[in-house]
């Protein structure tokens, strides 16, 4: 399984990566400190190397999580990205963020940071 973690916060990436490992996720994890970097990678990645799961932060400079989703939608018209399941992983407690996330067809789930072992087990179970 391949996983992308997109987050501008290095400590958050460290923690999520560690949690996935501790939760028994046998996966190849790639991390990105900016959404733009992740979009570039998706554009230039062969279909077989596309991630199965993307953990996406919302509050990021330059290209935020919502803008990433917009670009991802456009990209999916050129490229078969259906297999990528996007989970919002954010510290935001803003109700409007939750509503907006669940209103977006690309979003599979919404997880409040810090990600827990229970969250990871649920994702493993679904996939």
């Amino acid at each position: 399984m391949k996983i992308f973690i997109i987050d501008d916060d290095e400590i958050s990436i460290f923690f999520t990566e560690r949690s996935l490992q501790m939760g028994g996720f046998e996966a190849q994890i790639q991390t990105f400190l900016s959404a733009q970097e992740a979009l570039n990678k998706l554009r230039n990645t062969h279909l077989k190397d596309l991630p199965d799961i993307i953990f996406l932060d919302l509050n990021m400079p330059h290209v935020n999580g919502w803008e990433f989703l917009e670009s991802f939608k456009q990209l999916s018209q050129e490229k078969a990205l259906e297999k990528c399941l996007i989970y919002i992983l954010t510290s935001s407690l803003d109700i409007s963020d939750i509503d907006k996330a669940y209103g977006n067809q690309l979003v599979k789930g919404y997880i409040h940071k810090p990600i827990s072992l229970e969250d990871i087990q649920a994702i493993i179970h679904l996939n």
């Binding site: 916060d9 958050s12 923690f15 935001s92 940071k113």
Partner: peptide, 22 residues
Amino acid sequence: FTYIVSHNLRAPLANALGLVKH
């Protein structure tokens, strides 16, 4: 300030909470 509390203040707090749990 609601935005700051819900996003900016919550981010390092969430990290700290997670790290302490591990």
